[in-house]
């Protein structure tokens, strides 16, 4: 795909993503009302991450960027996940 900023996302694509984001917001509120206490955190974090991915890929245009930029962002997310994950290894097995 173009990596030189020549790709213009159409109005309709953005409208579709906006609709999806609103649907996912409604879904996460509905699920929270059902009180799946045990999995509540997990489910809402999964839905939030899907929403974040949609924003990253389309609104932030990452889908149309080159491999280098994608890699840099991916690395940052992995780093944050590792920091949180490793902290929990310490917290749980202390």
């Amino acid at each position: 795909m173009e990596t030189d900023g020549s790709h213009i996302t159409g109005y309709k694509t953005y409208a579709l993503i906006w609709g999806l984001l609103l649907l996912l917001t409604a879904a996460t509120i509905t699920v929270a009302q059902m009180h799946f206490t045990q999995y509540a955190v997990l489910i809402s974090l999964v839905i939030a991450s899907v929403k974040a991915l949609l924003v990253l890929a389309f609104f932030m245009h990452l889908r149309y960027e080159g491999a280098f930029l994608k890699g840099v962002v991916f690395l940052a997310i992995i780093a944050l996940t590792a920091i949180i994950g490793l902290t929990f290894v310490d917290v749980w097995y202390r």
Binding site: A48, V55, H61
Partner: peptide, 24 residues
Amino acid sequence: ENTGLYWHFVDIIWIYLFPLFYLV
């Protein structure tokens, strides 16, 4: 475009704050 990137980032932070403080 860069201003947009910043605004979307702030949106993503809220996407996580909302379930963590209001939903869960």
